[in-house]
Design a protein around this nucleic acid. Structure first.
Lengths: 158, 158
DNA sequence: GGTGCAAATGCAAGAAGTCGCATCAGCCAC
DNA sequence: GTGGCTGATGCGACTTCTTGCATTTGCACC
């Protein structure tokens, strides 16, 4: 499920999608090929709506429900991982190498990654006290960043 | 912004909404009165859709956009606070006394509260390292609970 | 009790998904 | 190369909000 970091390894991960689908009795269709092409050119994050739009640029016949269903399948293969952004909308991490969460500022709408070491106090505490295994890629922490709190307490919708 | 915990204090908090609105030049309308009535009978959490439905039971003429707009206003008064549930849908904490976050299990869809002490390792770390002020009421941690991880790794949509 | 202005409402259209179902088409076996 | 099984697609309807705009109405002032 973990995928390497070099350009070649990333390309390999995408190239293997076709075979990984077939191994599971799933199919390699033109629509899925298009989506994989688009995702292979994407770094970091993408929302469902953005992906639909980019696919439509290449093939205007793209249907949203197909895109969302294929995203579910690709998530099962581990090549993407979904989370929820600051407004609760779905967001996908492409080729999640190092699982990470997100920090959102409700003042300036800024966004930062939270790497595993930074989250580990919480992750460890929850595991120890509740036996709960946190899905870090799914973690979104909302609050106010340093810059915004020194400005003033703007409380925008998040 | 913080509201007491006894029944009388809670009732008082709701009763004061009318005057708190007027103080700000805002209005007390039949629609808002209805919503406050419904919320006053609500413990803990409610989603926007649930609230719309309950209001409609009492007044079938209830319009969703009015409800959502009023929720924004009530949040500014501090009597509710919004967050995002496991599926990213909006969820409101009614009369937030002790700010808390949520833990969701993607296996069994179970939900637990995270109180401040439990989250404090993360909150403190982010404040110290980044000057970031976490909004705890907005925190939703997704993962797999003890029971589900001992069963097997069911990976349902979250 | 009336008047006027700004706030709220109602309505309609739109965004972002989600779901059920009939049809289509990969792909495995022959 | 063909056929058939089953997974995938396309489509339409629905959910949950969100936003713009015309109309209504609360309420402060006279």
């Amino acid at each position: 499920m973990s995928v390497g970091g070099s350009v070649a390894e990333r390309a390999g991960a995408w190239a293997s999608v076709r075979d990984r689908l077939r191994e599971r009795g799933l199919r390699w269709t033109p629509q899925r090929r298009l989506m994989v092409d688009v995702l292979a050119q994407t770094d970091g994050h993408i929302t469902g709506a953005e992906l639909v739009e980019r696919c439509r640029e290449l093939d205007p016949a793209t249907i949203p429900s197909t895109v969302y269903r294929t995203l579910d399948v690709l998530e099962q293969l581990g090549v993407i991982r979904h989370g929820h952004g600051r407004d609760g909308r779905e967001e996908f991490h492409v080729l999640p190498q190092n699982e990470h969460g997100h920090l959102f500022c409700s003042g300036c709408s800024g966004s930062w990654d939270i790497e595993a070491p930074e989250a580990s106090p919480l992750v460890r505490a929850l595991r120890r006290q509740r036996g709960f295994a946190v899905d870090l890629s799914h973690l979104t922490v909302v609050g106010v960043c340093e810059d915004c709190s020194s400005d003033r307490g703007v409380a925008r919708r998040s």
